[in-house]
Amino acid sequence: MAASITLKKVGKIIGGKTILAGLSFGIEKGSLVAVVGLNGAGKSTLLKLLSGFENPNYGQVFLHGLDMNKRRNETRKLIGYVPYENDLDPWLTLEENILFNAELFNVKSDIAKKQIRKYSTLLGFNNQLNQTAFKVSGGIHKKTMLVRSLIHNPDILILDEPTGYMDAESIRLTWDLIKDLRGDKSIIYVSNSLNEIEQAHDRILVFDNGKILMDGHLDTLLESTIEYHQFQIEFELLTDDLYKQLKNIPTVVSPNRLDNTFHFYGRTRDVFFDVISKAPNEKKIDLNLKKLGLRDLLDSEFAGKGLD
């Protein structure tokens, strides 16, 4: 598939500190890409560079093959950007805020109004369009910014925490819309909600210290990086001696305890039986076996050193 966004050795230094270090990757047209990482990993900076909000210190960003630095005006029309913080004009109504952007991008008023009705209905805030921006909640701000970013029908959507400040229903409606837009638009977003990312992505970029640590679909990442199962056994009484015995079982990986619960990982399900056989007479209260998810992947032990 053709690349929608291409980064070539892009770097960003802020206050002498390297925020992004020589990033090179491409994003396919129509794909939904999630960016995750710890605070300060460089996720938001990456979005700012992609949106044209900031320039890289070195390297190049191409959108549809156009160099963002040299073809600013053309590339800006390709982008819809939703920042993390609310940047709406507080004294305009929500509709006026969006219409203002439509005017800036020379979208005809009647077309813009139709689009506003369509998207605001999908996102469930069409009855609040006439509210002044400072009077509505953070979730509504976020929805308004999302519609604003779509008003000029950009090919690329860049979203910083697209469901920030939203309630559960709003989150569902927003993801329904974003998933609907996938295929037609390339979407790259940052989110700290790992559950949401697990549900909505074609690809995940895991960031650490301004570099891409992992890149791929969650299933692929889990397969390639950690073929582990996660186990949890709650004993009636987990003594220190028993804990020492259990954690010294060679097949047990990354053991730890919380009160009477023994928590560990293993490459195969058989590890579970190894543990059970070491404590045949201890009373067990609860058992849990879980398939690993994104949170496990991002755990520093996983992302940094791996389980081994």
């Binding site: 909000f53 005006n73 800006r76 950007y81 004009d89 507080p90 952007n101």
Partner: peptide
């Protein structure tokens, strides 16, 4: 006012105008 509160002007700066 809006600039120091990170509103609006940043959005305008992303529009296709010099």
């Amino acid at each position: 006012d809006l600039r120091i509160h990170q509103k609006l002007l940043a959005n305008i700066a992303l529009t296709p105008y010099s």
